Lab assay of single mutants.
Amino acid sequence: HMTFVALYDYVASGETDLSFKKGERLQIVNNTEGDWWLAHSLTTGRTGYIPSNYVAPSD
């Protein structure tokens, strides 16, 4: 899985979304859904959809 880092805080707007904090590391499970990607937080262990423009590839 690709690892990304959150650029901003995001508060989930629905049950399927994943809240995260700036700097949180996320594994992308599925990024074929356009602007919303299914991600797994390496910080909280939770999985949900995130806005793709809130994250950047982590080196």
Rank of each mutant, 00 (worst) to 15 (best):
Y8Q: 10
F4E: 01
T44E: 03
N31D: 13
H40S: 09
Y54D: 02
S19C: 05
D9W: 01
R46M: 13
Y8W: 12
R25Q: 11
Y54R: 06
S52A: 14
T44Q: 06
V55D: 02
A12Q: 05
E15I: 10
L7F: 03
I50S: 00
E24Y: 01
Q27D: 06
N53Y: 10
W36C: 07
T44M: 03
T47G: 05
S19D: 07
T3V: 15
S41A: 03
V29I: 15
S41T: 01
L38M: 08
T44P: 00
H1Q: 13
D9Q: 03
T3K: 06
D9K: 01
W37F: 06
V11R: 06
A39D: 00
L18N: 02
G48I: 01
G48R: 02
R25V: 15
T43P: 03
N53V: 09
T44L: 04
K22Y: 04
I50F: 03
A12F: 02
D9N: 06
S19R: 04
A39G: 05
E15Q: 11
S41C: 04
G23R: 02
E24G: 01
P51T: 01
D17W: 07
V5H: 05
V55W: 04
Y8E: 09
S41G: 02
G14N: 13
N31I: 14
G14T: 13
I50M: 02
S58M: 15
H1G: 14
W37M: 06
E33D: 14
A39F: 02
L26C: 01
A39I: 04
H40F: 14
N31T: 14
E15D: 14
G14E: 09
G23F: 04
G14D: 08
W37V: 08
P57S: 09
G45E: 05
G45S: 06
L7R: 03
S13A: 13
D35I: 09
G23H: 05
L18H: 02
N30R: 07
T47K: 08
Q27T: 12
E15M: 09
W37T: 04
Y54W: 07
D59T: 14
W36Y: 09
L26T: 00
L42D: 05
T44V: 02
Y10D: 00
S58C: 15
Y49R: 09
T16F: 15
A6K: 00
S19M: 06
F20E: 00
L7M: 09
V55H: 03
G34C: 10
L38N: 02
T43L: 11
T43N: 09
A56W: 08
S58W: 14
A56G: 10
G23T: 02
P57C: 08
E33F: 13
T16W: 15
F20N: 00
Y54L: 13
S19Q: 05
D9M: 02
L26G: 00
D59W: 14
N30P: 05
T16D: 14
S13W: 08
W36D: 03
V11D: 11
K21M: 10
D35M: 10
F20Y: 01
K21Y: 07
K22L: 05
Y8V: 07
V5A: 03
E15S: 12
T47S: 11
D9H: 03
Y8H: 08
H40M: 14
E15P: 15
M2S: 11
N30M: 10
W37Y: 06
G23C: 06
D59V: 12
Y10V: 02
D35Q: 11
G23Y: 04
S19V: 04
Y54I: 06
S58R: 07
D35S: 11
L7P: 03
V55G: 04
S58L: 15
Y8A: 10
S41W: 00
N53W: 15
N53C: 12
T3A: 08
W37S: 03
S19E: 06
T16A: 12
A39R: 00
G14A: 13
S52W: 08
S58H: 14
D59G: 15
A12W: 02
T3I: 15
T32V: 09
G48P: 00
T43D: 15
S58P: 10
V11K: 08
T16R: 13
A12T: 04
T16L: 15
S13E: 13
G45Q: 07
L18F: 08
R46W: 07
G34M: 11
Q27W: 14
W36I: 07
G48C: 01
K21F: 09
A6E: 00
G23M: 03
W36M: 10
Y8R: 09
N30L: 10
S19F: 05
L42S: 05
I28M: 06
R25E: 10
E24L: 00
E24D: 12
Q27A: 11
I50W: 00
L18Y: 03
L18S: 03
E33K: 12
A39V: 12
Y10A: 01
G48F: 04
D35A: 11
E24V: 01
W37R: 02
T16M: 14
G23P: 00
T3Y: 15
G48S: 01
Y49K: 07
W37A: 03
G14S: 14
K21N: 09
W36T: 06
A56V: 14
T47P: 01
M2W: 08
A39L: 01
T47E: 07
W36N: 05
D59M: 12
T3E: 14
T47V: 11
T44C: 03
L26A: 00
D9I: 01
T47I: 11
S58K: 08
D17N: 09
S52N: 07
L38T: 03
R46P: 00
A6I: 02
I28Q: 03
S41V: 02
Y49W: 15
L26I: 07
S13Y: 10
H40Q: 13
H40T: 15
P57H: 08
I28D: 00
L42K: 05
Y54G: 06
Y10W: 07
N30W: 08
Y8K: 08
W36G: 02
V11E: 14
H40D: 03
G23S: 04
F20W: 01
A56P: 04
V5G: 01
D59Y: 09
S13C: 15
H40C: 13
T3R: 07
D9G: 04
S19N: 05
D17P: 02
V29H: 15
P51S: 03
W37P: 02
E15A: 15
S13G: 09
L26V: 04
F20V: 08
E15H: 11
H40A: 09
E24R: 00
M2E: 12
